[in-house]
Each structure stands twice: as structure tokens, then as C-alpha cells.
């Protein structure tokens, strides 16, 4: 009972919600870039929301099922086709032996996720199945997938058909406004630069990957330059680098950084950011910690309803 990777795609890795507890050893969490997508499709299939999923970029993988099972796709819209028939994101789908899943073209977003009902049997390292490409551990042999790989399915099963309500699906856009919380060095931005940070848009450059997004926009400067000793950073930390440009740290970020920390993207909006690719744009909107906490609580509450609904409907 396996999923055969016929074509690997440009960067397909096994990820879950990440590895916690080892940052003090320099071991970063990794995990999916778009946590909302991975959680939603896992819950839809009746899985644990932390079950491993495949994270795909475009060109995405081409896969073949050898057993009957349900699966779901979420995140980016890559025009998925099952045996050349278009299939929808955010819905349970059923595959039979020899069925082939492939992806036609990138319509919206940068990272698509595939979950199978029952989950995958993959390598766990320090409590997580996420692939750490630098240390070459976790996930599938600690590396991105290649043609001929067979991912073992833990307990493939068909599930009842369900679709996620549109109101729960993240409002992806190529030019989102994401909410941020001011961080350590925000107050050192001059007022004109602060306006610039909050009013001007920034472009995601081609120097952007799972470690971080390098943005291009009006150069920002601090009131006085600050030499910093390194301190811990996190997924969503917006750093100001010496040339006046910004870097947003993403899932594979290093655990510590030594650049001024202007702000952090709030957890609820990280999925919108995670779906951006080179050429896309982003604007920032400053909110309070309480606003961010409320936004998270609303999404958690929605997930709770989805979980309950799926359980009740079977």
C-alpha cells in the first residue's frame, strides 16, 4: 500500500506541523509553510492535524496510487487532475489502484499540500516527521522526493465525501495585506520609514524559499544603526538587513539572527504569506498582540467546529 512518485516535481518534501523543543540546540522547527492548509485537509480526512503531508511546489509531483484510499489537496491551486479529470482542492477525493494524480498549472499560490486518509509512514526525528534538508533527517530519508520513491500509507481507507466551507479557506491572494505585531527594533524606524513600512507594498524577490523571503521595496533605515548580538527568531520575523531591505523568516529559518527585528507576521496571516512566490507583493498592517490573539482564536474555533462536524458525520 504505497504512493509511487512517478515524477518528483521541483521540491516535494514530507512535512508536519514542525519540531518543537530543540531550538536551543540550533535545530529549527521546519514543518509546512502553510499550516492552515495542512491542518484543514488533515482534519477533513479524519486524520490527526499533525499528520505528515506532502508539500509541493510547481512543477508538482506526479503520483500513482496502488490501493483504494481517500486523499485531499489544499493550499495552492495547481489544477489537480486524477486520471486527467480535474479535481477540486479542499474536498475529499477517492483514488483506486493505478490512478494517477498530476498537476496542470499554477493558478494561485506557491505551495500545494496532499494528505491521505490514515497518513503516511515516514521517518520521525525528535518527535516530528518534518524533513530537515540541512541535517538530512526526518520525513522521507531526510531529503526531497525523487522519481521512484514509494511512500508507505499507514492505513489507507475511503472516507465519506466532505468539502471545507469556503469561509474556512484562507483568503489567498498574490498581493495580500498581512497583519504584523511590532517587535524589538520597530521603534527605531524613523517616522517616515515607519509610514513607508506600513503603507508601501513590498515585492517578493526570487531570493525566496522555505528559509525566508527576501523582499524588495523602499529602503528602510533606523534612527541610529544598531549593532546587534544574535538572539532567537521565529517563523514570521521580519528582519531589516544592512542594505535597507527586509527578510521575512519562514519555516526553515535558522534559530537565531543578528539583524534588527522590525515586526512579526501574526500566526493567523502566515498562511497568506506562505503562498507567495517571486513577483508577488505584500503589504503590512500593524495590529496589537491582542488583535493577533483574537485572529488566532477565531481560526482555532473554526477548526474546532470542522473537527466536530467531521466526527459527527463520520
Amino acid at each position: 500500500m504505497t504512493l509511487l512518485i512517478r515524477k518528483p516535481g521541483i521540491l516535494t518534501t514530507v512535512q508536519d506541523l514542525g519540531r518543537t523543543g530543540y531550538r536551543l540546540l540550533g535545530i529549527n522547527p521546519n514543518g509546512v509553510m502553510d499550516r492552515a492548509a495542512a491542518r484543514l485537509i488533515n482534519i477533513l480526512l479524519g486524520n490527526d492535524e499533525n499528520d505528515a503531508v506532502l508539500e509541493m511546489h510547481f512543477p508538482a509531483a506526479e503520483m500513482e496510487f496502488d490501493t483504494e484510499c481517500s486523499f485531499a489537496i489544499g493550499g495552492a491551486e495547481f489544477s489537480a487532475m486524477l486520471n486527467d479529470e480535474p479535481v477540486r482542492n479542499w474536498s475529499t477525493l477517492n483514488a483506486f489502484p493505478s490512478d494517477i494524480l498530476r498537476f496542470g498549472k499554477p493558478e494561485l499560490g506557491t505551495r500545494a499540500y496532499l494528505a491521505v486518509a490514515g497518513g503516511f509512514v515516514v521517518d520521525e526525528w525528535l518527535g516530528s516527521r518534518s524533513t530537515n534538508l540541512v541535517a538530512a533527517v526526518g520525513g522521507f530519508e531526510g531529503r526531497k522526493l525523487k522519481a521512484g520513491d514509494r511512500l508507505e500509507l499507514r492505513s489507507p481507507r475511503p472516507v465519506k465525501p466532505h468539502t471545507i466551507a469556503p469561509s474556512l479557506i484562507p483568503k489567498y491572494s498574490r498581493f495580500p495585506t498581512v497583519r504584523v505585531i511590532a517587535s524589538g527594533e520597530f521603534d527605531l524606524l524613523t517616522s517616515i520609514r515607519e509610514r513607508s513600512f506600513l503603507n508601501d507594498g513590498f515585492t517578493v524577490t526570487k531570493d525566496s524559499n522555505r528559509m525566508g523571503f527576501r523582499l524588495s521595496g523602499p529602503p528602510l533605515h533606523l534612527l541610529h544603526s544598531k549593532e546587534m548580538v544574535s538572539a532567537a527568531v521565529t517563523f514570521g520575523t521580519i528582519q531589516l538587513i544592512p542594505d535597507g531591505q527586509l527578510i521575512v523568516l519562514m519555516a526553515d529559518h535558522q534559530t537565531v539572527g543578528g539583524y534588527p527585528r522590525i515586526a512579526n507576521v501574526i500566526s493567523a496571516d502566515l498562511p497568506l504569506l506562505a503562498q507567495l512566490g517571486p513577483g508577488d507583493g505584500v503589504s503590512f498592517h500593524l495590529v496589537s498582540v491582542a488583535d493577533a490573539e483574537q485572529a488566532s482564536a477565531i481560526f482555532e474555533n473554526d477548526l474546532c467546529w470542522l473537527r466536530t462536524g467531521i466526527r459527527l458525520l463520520g
Binding site: L24, L25, G26, I27, N132, V134, A135, S230, A232, Q254, T255, V256
Partner: peptide, 8 residues
């Protein structure tokens, strides 16, 4: 402290 790479 540690950081940059696992175990650095």
C-alpha cells in the same frame, strides 16, 4: 548559545 546550524 547554539544556532545557525544544528549543533553550531
Amino acid at each position: 548559545m547554539l544556532g545557525f546550524l544544528p549543533g553550531f
